[in-house]
Simulated scan of single mutants.
Amino acid sequence: MVEPVKILPQEPPKQITARHVAHHLGEHLTGFLAANNMSGWVAKEDYVLRDDRLSDQILLVSQSTGLSVDRFRRIAKKLKKLGQAHGADLTLTGAKYMLAHALGYSSPQMAMQCRTVDEFIENIWPKGAAMSLVSLSDAVDGPHVNPELLALLKDRIHFNQKRDATVTITASADPKAGKKMRLERRERQRRMDREGSRPRS
């Protein structure tokens, strides 16, 4: 004879439901990653930018206000050495192109043409980077075009062309005066580098 088994009342099993409504796909993706991330989020402080990583150096340059011409050349040499140390066939020209792109210019030649009066290559990404990666005359189409930035860069190009022509003529006519001008320019760049490396209060 079969005896009946008494089963005590129990709570129904919990159903898996969404905690909140995802208004767009990004929230849904974040929620999915959070639910499946058993080890927890990595703190931002855990990643430290290092001098021996090529990508970290490019990131630091892209986050800066810009570089002096002298510092631009020194960092390009450093990037070339870093690339070759890690097995990459990186030339000095390639390193200069990487730096120019990190500052928002199409080429190192364009970056040099757009330098400021005090020999500083400004980072133009925060200003909208309205110039094309092909040429200055071809502005990027769309809402991000910044005509003020284009006008400013064209003015700098005209100024630098006149100044470079004057320096070339002076140096060919009087080598001592040309040498003095080059030394003064180099000293100005070094002074800017020293001021730029100081901690800002």
Results as ranks from 00 to 15, higher is better:
residue 101 H to I: 03
residue 156 R to K: 13
residue 149 L to G: 03
residue 83 G to A: 10
residue 154 K to D: 12
residue 123 N to V: 09
residue 88 A to I: 05
residue 54 L to K: 09
residue 119 E to Y: 02
residue 147 P to R: 06
residue 84 Q to R: 14
residue 100 A to H: 10
residue 128 G to A: 01
residue 150 L to N: 07
residue 76 A to N: 10
residue 93 T to W: 02
residue 133 L to P: 09
residue 148 E to D: 15
residue 64 S to Q: 10
residue 98 M to K: 13
residue 166 T to C: 00
residue 77 K to L: 11
residue 142 G to T: 09
residue 68 S to K: 00
residue 128 G to N: 06
residue 55 S to I: 01
residue 127 K to Y: 08
residue 57 Q to E: 15
residue 120 F to S: 04
residue 158 H to T: 14
residue 69 V to H: 05
residue 128 G to D: 02
residue 68 S to A: 11
residue 158 H to I: 14
residue 116 T to W: 01
residue 154 K to R: 15
residue 79 L to S: 04
residue 149 L to Y: 03
residue 90 L to G: 00
residue 125 W to C: 03
residue 122 E to N: 02
residue 60 L to A: 15
residue 55 S to L: 13
residue 164 D to P: 01
residue 129 A to V: 03
residue 165 A to D: 14
residue 74 R to L: 11
residue 63 Q to C: 08
residue 142 G to I: 06
residue 163 R to D: 14
residue 130 A to M: 03
residue 112 M to W: 06
residue 95 A to R: 06
residue 167 V to K: 05
residue 51 D to N: 14
residue 47 Y to S: 07
residue 143 P to G: 03
residue 100 A to N: 07
residue 77 K to S: 14
residue 100 A to V: 04
residue 115 R to H: 04
residue 87 G to L: 04
residue 115 R to G: 05
residue 151 A to P: 00
residue 116 T to N: 11
residue 62 S to I: 00
residue 74 R to S: 11
residue 49 L to P: 02
residue 165 A to G: 12
residue 157 I to Y: 00
residue 108 P to C: 10
residue 131 M to F: 05
residue 139 A to K: 10
residue 71 R to V: 09
residue 83 G to C: 09
residue 70 D to K: 02
residue 62 S to F: 00
residue 158 H to P: 01
residue 111 A to I: 01
residue 105 Y to E: 03
residue 114 C to T: 04
residue 62 S to W: 00
residue 60 L to R: 15
residue 58 I to R: 12
residue 113 Q to A: 15
residue 125 W to L: 11
residue 127 K to A: 14
residue 151 A to W: 05
residue 73 R to E: 13
residue 137 S to V: 09
residue 72 F to A: 05
residue 93 T to M: 11
residue 158 H to E: 15
residue 58 I to S: 09
residue 139 A to M: 10
residue 69 V to K: 07
residue 47 Y to H: 13
residue 47 Y to G: 00
residue 149 L to E: 15
residue 56 D to N: 08
residue 80 K to C: 08
residue 121 I to L: 06
